Amino acid sequence: MKSKATDTYQEYARKIGDRKVLYEVVTKKFNIQVALYPGSHIDIAPSIVIPTVTYMDNFKGAIRFFNDIDEIEEYIEQNKEYLDKSEISFLGQDYTTPFDIKEVDLIISQYAGFVGQATKQALKTGGILLCNDSHGDASLAKLDEDYEFIGIVNSQKEIETEHLEDYFVLPKEKSIDRKLVEQKMKGLKYKKNAENYLFRKV
Results as ranks from 00 to 15, higher is better:
I44A: 02
D84P: 02
L180R: 15
I159C: 15
D18I: 09
I107Y: 03
D70A: 07
G151Q: 00
Y190R: 00
Y95V: 04
G187C: 01
Y23N: 11
Y75P: 04
I150E: 12
K120P: 07
I42E: 05
S40Y: 05
A112E: 06
E195V: 15
Q10Y: 05
S109R: 00
D133F: 01
V104A: 06
Q110C: 07
V115W: 01
K186L: 03
S109G: 07
K120C: 08
E81N: 13
V34G: 08
I50H: 10
E73N: 15
I63K: 10
D146R: 09
P171S: 14
I159M: 10
K189M: 03
C131K: 05
K29E: 12
A112D: 06
D94S: 13
G116Y: 04
G151T: 14
M1I: 09
E195K: 15
I76L: 00
G39A: 02
A5W: 04
C131Q: 05
V202E: 09
K4F: 01
I176Q: 01
C131P: 01
R64T: 00
A62S: 05
D43P: 00
F114N: 09
S3N: 08
K184I: 06
A35L: 03
K29A: 14
I76F: 04
N79G: 09
V34P: 06
K189A: 10
G113F: 06
E103Y: 12
G61R: 10
T161S: 15
S47Y: 10
V25F: 07
V202H: 13
T125M: 05
V202G: 13
N154G: 05
K15S: 11
M1R: 08
N154I: 00
N193V: 08
V104K: 02
L36C: 11
Q93W: 11
D146S: 10
P51E: 01
T119Y: 01
F65Q: 10
D137I: 05
F66Q: 01
I72L: 02
Y190I: 02
E162K: 15
L123M: 05
M56P: 06
G136L: 13
Y82N: 00
D133P: 05
Q33Y: 10
I72T: 04
K142W: 05
I50L: 07
A194R: 15
G61P: 10
S155H: 03
E11A: 11
K2Q: 10
P38D: 00
V104G: 03
K15Y: 12
R200A: 14
N193R: 11
Q110N: 14
M1K: 09
R14K: 13
D146E: 06
L198F: 03
I159G: 14
I128P: 03
Y12M: 03
G126V: 00
